[in-house]
Simulated assay, not measured.
Amino acid sequence: MCGGEGTRLKSAREKPLYPICDIPMVDRVTAALEAAERVGTIFAAVSPNAPETRTHLEESDVRSLEAIETPGDGYVTDLQAVLDRPELETPVLTVAADLPLLEGDVVDRILERHGEEDASRTVCVPRALKRRLGASVDSSEHRDENLVPAGVNIVGSDSTSMTHVSYDVRLAVNVNRIEDARLAAELLPRQEVE
């Protein structure tokens, strides 16, 4: 999901293209998805809000990447536009483009835990973990006020919804503000920054 406006980041760059240690966040997320053994085709939900992101992704060398144009009217509307595509079958993994610490093993672990279930799954992290790290915490639309959606979901074929709680720091930093970008850069593995 990389078609949002990114207004909270207050950057001249489109949010998915905002660099963390000189690498755009969307490239970090697509690299994690490519590294995941359980991920097939990668669909990038782009919108009129992020035309440079669309161009960037179309010019990338990511295997099996396909851009899907969405209206850019918000996460739920854009997600529905993606799910309405006839070539997609559930379950569908959705990942926000603002998770620069995401890695393939994290994605595989989430998909493995989900298994063959028909239910949808929202991956959340404890609000206390985000606060301990110094990551921004916006109002949450999760039924448990102690949990914050991480930006990773599995959309299943039935209306049942489950929550997967993770304590993995790599899911706890969504870059919504400049301070989050600094935190993400600090938390990246040392060898990558050097």
Rank of each mutant, 00 (worst) to 15 (best):
G72K: 09
V46I: 13
P48D: 03
A67Y: 11
V62D: 06
S60R: 05
V46T: 14
P48L: 03
H56K: 05
R63A: 14
E52G: 05
L57T: 04
T77G: 05
T53W: 07
G74F: 02
L83D: 04
V76C: 09
I68V: 15
Q80M: 14
A50S: 14
D73T: 02
R54H: 09
R54S: 02
E52N: 02
N49G: 02
T77K: 13
N49P: 02
L83N: 02
L79C: 06
A67D: 08
Q80E: 13
D61N: 14
A67C: 15
H56G: 03
G72T: 04
E59W: 11
E52C: 00
T77L: 10
V46Q: 00
E58K: 06
S60E: 07
D73S: 06
T70F: 07
A67Q: 06
V82K: 02
T70R: 12
F43K: 08
F43C: 10
E69S: 08
P71I: 01
S60I: 09
E66C: 15
E52K: 02
V76G: 10
D61C: 14
Q80P: 06
P71C: 10
E59I: 04
S60T: 04
N49Q: 04
D61Q: 12
T53V: 07
R63G: 14
A45I: 08
G74T: 06
Y75G: 10
A67S: 15
A81K: 10
E69G: 05
S64L: 09
L65N: 08
A45M: 08
P71E: 00
D78Y: 05
T77V: 11
D73N: 11
T55C: 10
N49K: 00
H56T: 08
D61T: 12
V46D: 07
L79R: 09
A50H: 07
A44H: 11
E66G: 04
D78G: 01
S64T: 12
H56W: 14
H56N: 08
A44G: 12
E69P: 02
P48E: 06
D78T: 00
R63P: 15
T55G: 01
T77R: 13
L79K: 04
D73G: 05
P71T: 08
E52H: 03
E66W: 14
P48W: 05
Q80H: 14
A67W: 11
V82S: 02
A44R: 10
Y75F: 14
I68D: 07
T70Q: 08
T55A: 15
N49L: 00
P71L: 03
E58W: 03
T53N: 01
V62C: 11
L57C: 07
N49E: 03
P51G: 05
G74W: 05
T55W: 09
E59A: 13
F43S: 05
D78C: 02
S60G: 06
D61M: 13
D78F: 01
A81S: 13
A45Q: 09
A45F: 10
A44M: 11
T70W: 12
Q80K: 15
S60Q: 03
P51N: 07
S64F: 10
V76F: 09
D78E: 04
H56E: 06
T55Q: 12
G74N: 00
V76T: 13
R54N: 00
N49I: 03
P51V: 01
L65G: 07
V82F: 13
Y75R: 12
